[in-house]
């Protein structure tokens, strides 16, 4: 690990620890890391949107023309229209001209909503319905082995579960009698589904946490500081940088404790 990589890794470690410090309470180190993260992320998306979005979709299409003629001498001058419509969006910041931004918004929303009607119906509703309406495997109803996914009873649960959960969301009829019974089965299925999703999310977050601890221990401490002799190139300059980061943390903790003591004294 060279010195510049060490500095970058140390800064990433500092940000990681600063964000984790929120677990104690909201503090200046967390706010610093949070604002830096938001700023750099927003800037990253500006650059990506420009190079991968605006440049190929608009600028490169007009680049065979001349800006002096407002690209009207381009081979595809009509692409100036969505460009102008996009610029008109910025009129939203003026109270007097804010209404102008409704025109690009209207075209955008109109096209997006119009396209969404058949596409959502096809992709979300019809495809899911088609997938549910497969023949039940009666020949292998009990399946082979413990909780067989391909068994007939699993297919029955999928079909009846999906229909019952939809009945639960249907509020135009009171959930009483047979409809009430189906809706009750639907909410059981939904609870099992939510529980599985919740457990999955918890495990996902814990694996992310384990990954951050691994980063701090393996990428930073072990590689950069030669703990257990992993990095023989580590020298005193690394230790100096580590000391600076550690001192900032210790200084902050001491400052917080002193502040608490002062508050207690004045009370």
């Amino acid at each position: 690990m060279d010195f510049s990589t060490f500095l970058w890794t140390s800064f990433a470690a500092f940000l990681t620890l600063a964000i984790f410090s929120f677990l104690y309470k909201d503090n200046p180190l967390y706010k610093f890391a949070e604002h830096l993260f938001v700023g750099v992320s927003a800037g990253y998306f500006v650059v990506i949107l420009f190079h991968n979005g605006l440049s190929p979709n608009l600028l490169q299409r007009l680049s065979d023309g001349d800006w002096y003629y407002l690209w009207l001498n381009s081979l595809r001058p009509w692409y100036i229209i969505p460009g102008i419509l996009g610029i008109l969006m910025f009129s939203r910041f003026s109270k007097k001209w804010a209404w102008v931004s409704r025109y690009p918004m209207a075209i955008y929303i109109g096209i997006a909503a119009g396209v969404a009607i058949p596409l959502e119906m096809t992709n979300r509703v019809l495809r899911q319905m088609v997938a549910s309406m497969t023949p039940i495997n009666w020949g292998n109803f009990l399946g082979s082995g413990y909780l067989d996914i391909a068994s007939g009873y699993s297919e029955v649960i999928i079909l009846t579960g999906a229909v019952s959960a939809l009945v639960y969301f249907f509020f135009s009829t009171p959930h009483r009698g047979a409809i009430g019974g189906i809706a009750k089965y639907g909410i059981w299925i939904l609870m099992l589904g939510f529980g599985a999703t919740f457990g999955f999310t918890v495990m996902n977050r814990i694996s992310l946490f384990a990954n951050r601890i691994q980063f701090l221990w393996v990428n930073w401490m072990k590689n950069a500081f030669n703990v257990k002799g992993v990095n023989p190139q580590a020298d005193t300059s690394y230790m100096l940088a580590f000391t600076v980061v550690a001192l900032i943390f210790v200084g902050y903790v001491v400052w917080e404790i002193m502040k608490k003591f002062r508050k207690a004294e004045t009370a």
Binding site: A113, I117, V125, S154, L166, F169, L190, G193, A196
Partner: peptide
């Protein structure tokens, strides 16, 4: 089994619900 059977049934119902909701909202907008 939980992921592929009850969870799939619940997700399927939710996706169909979202789809119908989006179509209804898009029609209201248009």
């Amino acid at each position: 089994w939980l992921l592929n059977v009850p969870n799939l049934a619940a997700k399927r119902a939710i996706i169909i619900g979202i789809g119908l909701g989006m179509v209804a909202t898009a029609m209201k907008v248009v």
